[in-house]
Design a protein around this nucleic acid. Structure first.
Lengths: 337, 337
DNA sequence: GGCAGGTACAAAACCGGTTTATCAAATCGG
DNA sequence: CCGATTTGATAAACCGGTTTTGTACCTGCC
């Protein structure tokens, strides 16, 4: 099947390419009669603009890019990214903008990916996710002048606009909830300390626990279920094990629940479990997991909207998205006496 | 930051654009001395080809497309897609080909997406996943002449090349394994009947069970955990409940395990559970789930390789990928007496 | 010495759009 | 009724590459 071009339309309409272009883009300089004739012909021939040609001419590719850098085995199960992508996608599809996706195992590859996309003029803008402490991508994107929006913040943005959800309050509500249930020793199975939101959440956690006089333990992991399980075993094997554990993602919480089962520790009888990142996963297991969650898809949509604005040249400012909400379920209960 | 073009290089080198193009593409017609000089200048200026310009000229976009059409809430947790994408991505990134991703809720949107990509010359080829019975996409892609490879088969390909993994044998091995454990009433919580591989797997399941004289029950679902849980409740509430259930994906198996816990049915004491699609998820819960799995990432990589060949114009034939493997874990055991 | 053939590069067309400059005809104001 | 402006279209340049064609110059051979 052959795709018609504006030259084909011009020939059929007996006008020049430029007239066709004006007509199709609804710009002045074409009489109503000619315009209608051209539009009719274009419709009849099934014409669609070549994004490639438009991109070359107009300098706008109609594509946004996202590089995801968690290890593939984690990615597979962590609902977060798919939800995020789904939210972003919904917003982009409506405006006929495409999403380019790349997975990169390490920071180097990731930086290279952004640089290549920029050099090859493949994307108009990019999403930055999993902001690290001293993230080199921030400086890179600023230097390249490639429109970018950070999914995360408010710190470390280095001039780039970002969207984040304020977790401090949610962290506090979780800690207070556990304290109210009588828990005095609580633990946190955290994500990688290089990630900004991990450290931010950690600080909030310590502060909230400290204010209530609770004892805390923290273990860093790489977000995988395996490490979540290992951390849980370690915590439960301690002489004075915590009576409640907060996990930095749903997958690790699930693994923690599995370990509790394996070790014969009743949940929530002797151990309460809270998952950050609520997802369907949390509702499927028994007992269902108490979780803290945000509407990730709408988060993605919001971020996408801002990046689209940014690419369009409109000024975009950083901002907060909805605060996470604690949903108590069966995995939390009164502390054992 | 400004991106250098071949015209900039030509100016600096005192030659014309065409000479630069020849030199950079390693084509004859340029003296060694000139070639080296041009390459040096290009390197020094940090030149990278504009994919957009190349695409317009050469007709090759350097992009492949994938449309995923499961409901967003399932997608989030089902490891399958992320693994698949990860495998595809790995293969593409190595050859500097990008992956365009779109999520479509229904078949119409999906067909529209392919058509638009084609009309806008956005992609060089596409992946087709979740082949349906009488899939209209097959005819569409053949008509458009857009290179496509089907992830699935061997039936219903309609001339398109496909890659599938032969499940019949794996289904048989699962059924025989359960029969050997003494199970006489087995059930299957299946995916949507519109999907080709669901029906193929179902037929194999019935055949294998029939050959061994087992009683079977099947429930169709939409692959979500919720429906998996509902199906499990229904099965377990029957007067003569099955003693073993095979789930069509890992998420539903997980949900099934949760329901068993909720109903006080010991696993594997009174119920054995087998998950199709092995993933980390299966190893995290307690007891860990017996599962049938393939290396999805390598499957994705293989499919990507074939599509790349197809786009390059090389003939590509359909073929089988590795057969799924049964990994027994703690969720299966002898049938209750 | 003249001609065929090859080499090394220049010039120009092309891909499919957008955009600017140009220009003739129609319309307007005084 | 004539110059000035507006209207509606054309011609051509441009985006950044690839590819085809053209053209000097050099080499080799009879």
């Amino acid at each position: 099947m052959k795709r018609p071009t504006i030259a084909d339309i011009a020939r059929r309409a007996g006008v020049t390419k430029s007239t066709v272009s004006f007509a199709l883009n609804d710009r002045p300089g074409v009489s109503a009669a000619t315009r209608d004739r051209i539009l009719d012909i274009a419709r009849e021939m099934g014409w669609q603009p070549s994004r490639v040609a438009r991109a070359l001419s107009g300098g706008r590719a109609g594509v946004l890019g996202l590089v995801v850098d968690r290890p593939a085995r984690t990615l597979g199960i962590e609902p977060f990214f798919m939800q995020l992508i789904s939210g972003i996608e919904g917003e982009l599809a409506a405006r006929d903008v495409a999403l380019l996706l790349q997975m990169a195992e390490d920071g180097q590859t990731q930086v290279a990916a952004y640089r290549r996309w920029w050099a090859e003029r493949r994307v108009d803008g990019v999403f930055l996710v999993d902001l690290r402490v001293d993230d080199e991508r921030v400086a890179l994107l600023a230097e390249l002048g490639l429109p970018a929006i950070v999914i995360g913040g408010p710190d470390g943005l280095g001039g780039l606009p970002g969207v984040w959800n304020d977790e401090a309050e949610a962290v506090r509500s979780v800690v207070e909830y556990l304290a109210a249930l009588g828990h005095r020793r609580i633990a946190r199975v955290a994500g990688p300390p290089e990630l900004r939101h991990t450290t931010a959440r950690g600080a909030a956690f310590e502060a909230a626990a400290g204010a209530l006089g609770l004892t805390t333990t923290s273990v860093s992991t790489d977000y995988t279920g395996e490490e979540g399980a290992r951390a849980t075993r370690r915590l439960l094997a301690a002489p004075e094990p915590p009576t409640a554990v907060v996990y930095d993602n749903d997958v690790m919480a699930l693994a923690g629940l599995g370990v509790a089962g394996e070790m014969g520790v009743p949940v929530p009888g002797r151990l309460s479990i809270v998952a950050w990142d609520d997802s369907v996963l949390c509702r499927l297991v028994h007992p269902p997991l108490t979780a803290v969650g945000v509407d990730i898809a709408s988060y993605g949509a919001e971020v996408a909207r801002r990046l689209l604005d940014l690419v369009a040249g409109d000024p975009v400012e950083s901002g907060r998205h909805a605060a996470p909400v604690l949903t108590p379920r069966g995995s939390t209960g009164p502390a054992p006496s």
